[in-house]
Amino acid sequence: MWKTTLLLCLLALPLTSCETSGVAQVKTPVAEPLVQVKTKFVDTGCDWTKPIYVSSTDVLSDETARAVLAHNRAGAAQCGWKPTGK
């Protein structure tokens, strides 16, 4: 008889532990963290490029002269290269 009583007590314990008071608990919503992604472009082209200087003894084809002039003009516009007056 005492085994049956002990068994009933042990079975009743887990059943009563899940009982609620009947009051619904309202969980407050947790605000999601705001994540902002910003892309920053860093132009390092002016750090490693320099103007091309041509000597009076250099012999250039027309195509090479146009390429050097385009390079120097682009550098002057983008990097602020100044003519040296050589």
Rank of each mutant, 00 (worst) to 15 (best):
Cys18His: 05
Val42His: 08
Thr64Ile: 03
Leu60Val: 02
Lys82Trp: 03
Lys82Arg: 12
Leu13Pro: 01
Arg73Phe: 08
Leu60Thr: 05
Ala65Thr: 02
Glu63Val: 03
Leu13Gly: 06
Val35Phe: 06
Ser55Pro: 00
Ala67Phe: 06
Arg66His: 05
Leu7Pro: 00
Asn72Glu: 03
Thr84Arg: 15
Asp47Pro: 00
Ser21His: 11
Thr44Phe: 11
Arg66Tyr: 04
Ala70Cys: 06
Ala76Asp: 12
Pro14Tyr: 07
Met1Cys: 07
Val68Gln: 00
Leu10Trp: 07
Glu32Thr: 15
Leu10Pro: 04
Asn72Arg: 01
Val68Asn: 08
Val68Leu: 02
Ala77Met: 13
Gly75Asn: 07
Leu8Asp: 09
Thr20Gly: 11
Gly45Thr: 11
Arg73Asp: 08
Leu34Pro: 01
Trp2Val: 09
Thr44Ile: 09
Pro83Ile: 10
Glu19His: 07
Val30Asn: 12
Ala12Phe: 11
Ala70Gly: 08
Ala65Phe: 03
Gln36Lys: 10
Leu69Cys: 10
Glu32Asp: 09
Ser61His: 05
Thr28Trp: 07
Thr44Val: 11
Gln25Lys: 13
Pro83Trp: 00
Thr5Pro: 01
Thr4Trp: 11
Gly45Gln: 07
Gly75Thr: 00
Asp58Gly: 02
Trp81Phe: 06
Ala77Trp: 09
Gly85Met: 01
Tyr53Gly: 14
Thr16Pro: 01
Ser21Arg: 10
Leu34Glu: 11
Ser17Ala: 13
Met1Tyr: 14
Leu11Gly: 08
Lys86Ile: 09
Lys82His: 09
Trp2Lys: 04
Thr64Phe: 02
Gln25Ile: 10
Val59Lys: 08
Val30Gln: 13
Leu7Arg: 01
Thr64Arg: 04
Val30Cys: 04
Ala76Val: 09
Lys86Asn: 09
Asp47Cys: 00
Gln25Cys: 13
Leu15Trp: 10
Ala77Cys: 03
Asn72Phe: 00
His71Ile: 03
Val26Ile: 11
Thr57Glu: 04
Asn72Ile: 02
Ser61Ala: 12
Leu13Gln: 12
Pro83His: 02
Phe41Tyr: 13
Leu11Val: 14
Ala74Ile: 05
Leu6Met: 14
Gln25His: 14
Leu34Asn: 07
Gln36Gly: 09
Cys46Asn: 04
Asp62Arg: 06
Thr28Phe: 09
Val35Glu: 12
Asn72Gly: 03
Cys9Tyr: 08
Leu69Ile: 05
Gly22Ile: 06
Gly85Trp: 01
Leu6Val: 10
Asp58Pro: 00
Trp2Cys: 06
Val54Gly: 04
Ala67Ser: 14
Thr28His: 13
Gln25Asn: 11
Leu15Lys: 02
Lys38Met: 01
Gly80Asp: 04
Thr57Gly: 00
Ala67Gln: 15
Ala77Ser: 10
Lys38His: 08
Trp48Asn: 12
Thr4Tyr: 11
Ala77Pro: 04
Pro83Thr: 10
Ala70His: 10
Cys46Val: 08
Thr49Glu: 08
Leu6Trp: 13
His71Asp: 02
Thr5Gly: 09
Lys50Tyr: 06
Thr4Gln: 10
Val23Ala: 15
Ser55Leu: 09
Thr57Val: 01
Ala76Gln: 15
Leu60Met: 11
Leu8Glu: 15
Thr5Trp: 12
Leu69Gly: 05
Ala31Phe: 08
Ala70Thr: 07
Val30Trp: 06
